[in-house]
Design a protein around this nucleic acid. Structure first.
Lengths: 144, 144
DNA sequence: ATGTAAATCGTAAATATTACGTTTTAAATG
DNA sequence: CATTTAAAACGTAATATTTACGATTTACAT
């Protein structure tokens, strides 16, 4: 997914192409990491000071539906990031401090031989959490 | 982990052995599935009608700390279940309707060759979500 | 039986998310 | 370009989950 691709999805599906949505796409594209709703609002309010949570959450849900952002959750908060890796299935190594990720191309589901009986699989989650080198350095400094 | 084991942990570590904690352990042992805080409260209030959320959450956090329950989260809610599989590392196949699980003994981390550079791994999550046969039947019936 | 630290109660606060009636706006239409 | 209309955003309130705190009660050691 690139910047233009996301904007195209919005237009193509008949969604209104507002300045706020354009900016929202840009924020995700620029940051290219997991952001909480609060963080998204903070970035957006740089350009739209009065922007409300309603608009943020509504558009985050929309973006998730139409495949502009992918989501996960940690520390009790939902997080959103620009869809990465194109259409190919992937997983993430995630820094829980800054939300930056690395893409993992292996999927553990391939190693699960056969389908379990009497159980309909609807999804799965594989994520590795940790601290990236930048944040590790920051934490070290903050302890001085 | 068995029922006695959990009660032993409480006693051994010098935690007070209250009727409520005993009952809480029993609830988790009996249900042996993931429960939300609300569900736990409901079960507990059968015996202790005035029980507060404070007590539930405080003891859930304690139980997690001392290894009586393991936790995860889905649909925006934290869930707790009696530790299963003894001390061995494992993952779960989870029915998101009833919280029942099956233990997976494979771990995808074994397939990740080597450690990623410049990244301290603090944890990982691998879960398969779906609908168990019982809940599948229930859903079918509810649609009639 | 008594003292004390821990547990619980009752209630309130913090946090994240969702909902709703009203107003504004993008963009389709004539 | 003016008009229309359905969608988007606003402003605000409600809901749900989790956490916090002073007062009271209780388990357990002495």
């Amino acid at each position: 997914m690139d910047l233009q691709g996301a904007l195209e999805i919005l237009k193509r599906n008949g969604y209104k192409y507002t300045g706020k949505r354009k900016r929202l796409v840009e924020v995700f594209y620029r940051e290219s990491r997991y952001l909480s709703a609060k963080e998204v609002l903070d970035y957006m309010q740089e350009d739209y000071p009065g922007l409300s949570f309603d608009t943020i959450y509504r558009n985050l849900a929309l973006f998730e539906d139409i495949g502009i952002v992918e989501t996960t959750e940690w520390q009790g908060e939902r997080r959103y990031r620009f869809c990465c890796g194109g259409d190919e299935h992937h997983h993430h190594l995630i820094c829980t401090f800054c939300g930056k990720t690395r893409t993992l191309h292996v999927c553990p589901m391939n190693a699960i031989l056969g389908k379990p009986e009497d159980f309909d699989i609807t999804g799965h989650k594989f994520e590795i959490y940790g601290t990236c080198s930048t944040c590790k350095a920051d934490v070290a400094v903050s302890k001085m």
